[in-house]
Write a protein that binds this DNA or RNA. Structure first.
Lengths: 342, 342
DNA sequence: ACTGGGCGAGACAACGTTATCCCACTGTCG
DNA sequence: CGACAGTGGGATAACGTTGTCTCGCCCAGT
């Protein structure tokens, strides 16, 4: 059709949504009065308010949040840059729920463990003028955020410190968690306990491996060949496992440093976990359904998320406040795999 | 009111971030020239461009996305309202990756299976003038979205149809998936096959239960007491399971209608799944680690997410296009639990 | 030397909202 | 009866950006 209809035009105009001006015209009041009604200002007479509300309904008017934010300066939303948005993420749930409770909207983006994607996600949040950013850091260097922080952006890191940045941080008690796991296994009589975990270039991997070494030294055990940090790949994990078992004094128990390692180890061990006692760092769904059930050190996900929002709110209230680092304790959950004697 | 020039005033002004005007002044060029440089317009001389870039760096300028969007009319972002943002969600991953590839940002929000939260999330997306919305519908009635659709908002539903709305939709082949599961079990020799699944008030629950009835009738089996739709609660599922086993001709095999039901059944069955053959609808992580491994009908998550973005893009290109519903086929993954004879 | 064209930079308005100021009307008190 | 405070609505100017138009400049062509 050669219609004169301008719908297909290239301009920025779609069929055009109604604006406050349209509502004002429809209701026969001033623009500012519509704004007042929409924002619940009580200084508007009931008759005027009703006229406006009726016009809003008739036109299907929805305020443009972008214009509102631009004018008012407030966003009412915080960004959350997490490692994998499509994976189960109990901390994100706590962040979302807590933020909701204080009237903030959470916009979540995924970094996929990629430095550039983290940067993209975070800068995109800055350009949207989020009221704050919660970040699960992956980059080795976060200096790119310093100008934003100087400009007043509240930032909170969780799970790992944001390298190169002095910001509020929420961490798990990695050392305490490893100590719990270790103590649990020694209480069953184990003395030859091995560790397989994440690369020590990663903060949590480093903390947990170090804590494990300390624990093993503490009972007079030899460190030699018992501690295996490295990339979490099935082949590397399987090789580490083989090294722990094929020795004169094979390990009778094992601590794994994170969820992915735990799973890789279980896959390599096969049925009944080859008779080895196992305690994994990080809880996970279905851990109770495996045979045996997997004993884990669980992180305080809910508390971590809640604390992150609290730190963010505190900083929004007082930008000059010194930064704080909160350590959230872990909890050992026995399910069977860590309760067998050597 | 004390000071005439109070710095800590309550106004919309934080320390104030630099704007294009500041950059223009710093660089000694016109406002519009800064805009051109920032947007990569090539009609700017290299010397001017360099002056601007240097000023941008000096001031730490970041464009305000809200103002840009307000002025240009484009948002460059689509909203995704999913059931549980903190749970593993392979479709969301596919949505995110596909959207990224075509230069769109995805803003994900959680509905938590709550009608009101879905409404809140979706309306919040509308107020932000998202370029499109992908929704995993939970509400029984989506008429509230009709005005937005009329105003030109592209909407795509996935997993379930959006009741009361004529929009593009991506669904799994629920009937085909059930048929696959059923055929797989009959091929092992099973004839007494039970079904436990979701409430039939839910679209997927209804489709799957119906397909199962058809399949069972198809081999001349009795429906009586073999099909158990209902709320996914451990007690209800356990009762259904007991009913299937405590009868003169107990079920030798079982099809479960969704992930949560599968898990509840496995918990109730205990070690070795009580010798019953099991095929679950929905794949899940660690399914291969259970003993036996869990045979499942997997949905085409990646294809569903990709298709959702494709339908959205197609509608953005042509608002008048008739709506389409795409059915994505399922795939049976044998892992052990469904491969035992009666 | 004058003109025409292309290129590149600037002035101005507009996007849809809220903040500020102002004014018209009412009711009350001196 | 006049002035004044209080109430409630309206006009206008921002917020930070981009679209449109204009204009100055330089070079080539006649």
């Amino acid at each position: 059709m050669p219609g004169p209809d301008a719908v297909g035009k290239s301009g920025p105009h779609h069929p055009r949504r109604p604006t406050m001006v349209d509502v004002a015209r429809e209701a026969g009041v001033a623009l500012r009065t519509v704004s007042r009604v929409v924002n619940g200002d009580t200084t508007v007479g009931e008759d005027f308010a009703e006229r406006v509300r009726s016009a809003v309904d008739r036109l299907g008017y929805q305020p443009d949040e972008r214009a509102r934010q631009l004018r008012s300066g407030r966003t009412g939303a915080i960004g959350a840059a997490v490692r994998h948005i499509a994976d189960a993420h109990p901390v994100l749930r706590a962040i979302d729920e807590t933020a909701r409770a204080v009237g903030l909207t959470v916009v979540a983006m995924s970094t996929e463990d990629d430095e550039e994607r983290e940067r993209d996600a975070v800068m995109s949040m800055c350009r949207r003028r989020m009221d704050g950013i919660i970040i699960e850091p992956i980059a080795q260097d976060h200096h790119y955020l310093q100008p934003e922080i100087d400009a007043g952006l509240p930032v909170v890191a969780f799970d790992r410190p944001a390298a190169g940045l002095d910001v509020d941080t929420v961490l798990s008690d990695n050392r305490g968690g490893i100590a719990q796991a270790f103590a649990h296994l020694t209480a069953q009589g184990h003395r030859r306990i091995g560790y397989i975990g994440d690369d020590e270039r990663i903060h949590t991997g480093r903390e947990r491996a170090t804590a494990f070494r300390d624990a093993l030294s503490g009972i007079g055990g030899t460190l030699d060949g018992m501690v295996h940090p490295g990339p979490v790949e099935p082949a590397r994990v399987a090789a580490a496992l083989a090294a722990l078992r094929d020795r004169p004094d094979p390990a009778t128990a094992l601590v794994t440093g994170n969820f992915n390692t735990t799973v890789a180890v279980i896959r390599a061990l096969g049925a009944d976990f080859g008779g080895i006692a196992l305690v994994g760092f990080d809880d996970f769904g279905l851990a109770d359904l495996l045979r045996p059930g997997v004993t884990v050190v669980a992180q305080g996900d809910e508390e971590i998320g809640r604390t992150a929002i609290e730190l963010l709110s505190a900083r929004r209230a007082n930008r000059a406040r010194p930064t704080r680092t909160v350590i959230v304790s872990t909890r050992l959950i026995p399910r069977g795999s860590g309760e067998s004697a050597p």
